[in-house]
Design a protein around this nucleic acid. Sequence first.
DNA 1: CGATGACTTGAACGCCATCAATCGCTGTGG
DNA 2: CCACAGCGATTGATGGCGTTCAAGTCATCG
Lengths: 223, 223
Amino acid sequence: MFRNLSTDPEKRPRLLGEIGALTHTELRTGETKYDSGNEIFGEAEPANYLYQVVEGAVRTHKLLSDGRRQIGAFHLPGDIFGFENGHVHRFTAEAIVDTTVRFVNRESFERVAETDFAMFKSLLNMTTDSLQHAEDHMLLLGRKNALERVAAFLLEMHRRQIPEGFVALPMGRRDIADYLGLTLETVSRILSELCRTGYLSMMGETRRTIVVLNPVGLAELER
Amino acid sequence: MFRNLSTDPEKRPRLLGEIGALTHTELRTGETKYDSGNEIFGEAEPANYLYQVVEGAVRTHKLLSDGRRQIGAFHLPGDIFGFENGHVHRFTAEAIVDTTVRFVNRESFERVAETDFAMFKSLLNMTTDSLQHAEDHMLLLGRKNALERVAAFLLEMHRRQIPEGFVALPMGRRDIADYLGLTLETVSRILSELCRTGYLSMMGETRRTIVVLNPVGLAELER
DNA sequence: CGATGACTTGAACGCCATCAATCGCTGTGG
DNA sequence: CCACAGCGATTGATGGCGTTCAAGTCATCG
């Protein structure tokens, strides 16, 4: 569960897969488990590691002083996060569920990238992927209405998970809301509405398992 | 006018400055003028060139099918734009005023970057800068109210222009609105409000020259 | 079995969008 | 020189979408 196809399937087994192959040479790597809700790194902290989700799910967010929160991205198994060009994290990262994370020492990674063009290119590719996601998300946050946002979110999660006939959302309504720039009540209302109108159906205790009954219709709602 | 300090002053004379020094070797470069409002490249077009603003100003935006627009960034003199990792532009770029743009053939640039680490690193740095800007803008679009957005915009423009005692905005209210995820009426109302409350004063025919009287106060409004 | 936490649903409000009128400046032509 | 169209900005009136506040449901857990 919570496996991931990444944004672009052909790029799926990305950098840290390669790093895995290099482990025995120069890179210092490791693996850690984080319980649900725990912080992996904090905004403005020194960025000493690169991370890849092995199992579970991670959210990265920024906070305003009064507690308003914007989640920039969800990271599913296979995704790499925490790469920064400066030496400081620009987001806080937290485990959404119990999560296993592989990490690579940033400094040792940079030493390798210094001489390995393929590695450097991977880094650029990952950065560009993140940029593209952020650019698309700006359009969503700036110009889409609530229904379009939720539809876009469902389609994104649908696309990123290995097809199993349903979408297993690791995150709660509050996380979805903070990702979409809405309130959790609005997200809940729109999910209910989409159920009533036959676009999807919700299962499980906390309604976090979603069967998309009409993906084409959803895509039209997203515009 | 419309000179630029970029986000981080130390990075100001970036890539194409270096490219300028390399022109005689392998890179194919040139310069073009675009009249106000004209398109430099379109979304989904093949990305054959990298661009740097020499004089003037450029906006990059995405469109929804029904015409809603989100401007991702404004590019002022010195700024480089149009770099993509895929071979297709993800934004449309247009001149906001009469603008001179230097360009570099993408293919020849990539040939150079293939063997020149410094060049490659510059590209990564630029991408990371864009990513950081996009991430900050997501927070603004997702979680800030209209007053905070306008204050943030003014401070950004203030910061990016060479200090001259005033901020000369090259773009109109509609562009500002589409950058901030608001309507032009809301932008106008809030600028008037900021005038009335003594944070700034507006000059010129179209009120596009702005004197920030209380930058500290503005920063507090932004949160 | 009461407490807690996640989700849903309802009712009322408010921020910002929408619709519309007006102002001021510019350029054009009589 | 003035009339007038045109464009950008401002300002006002109204309305709607999403927020806020408030119950209420259901499952889990001590």
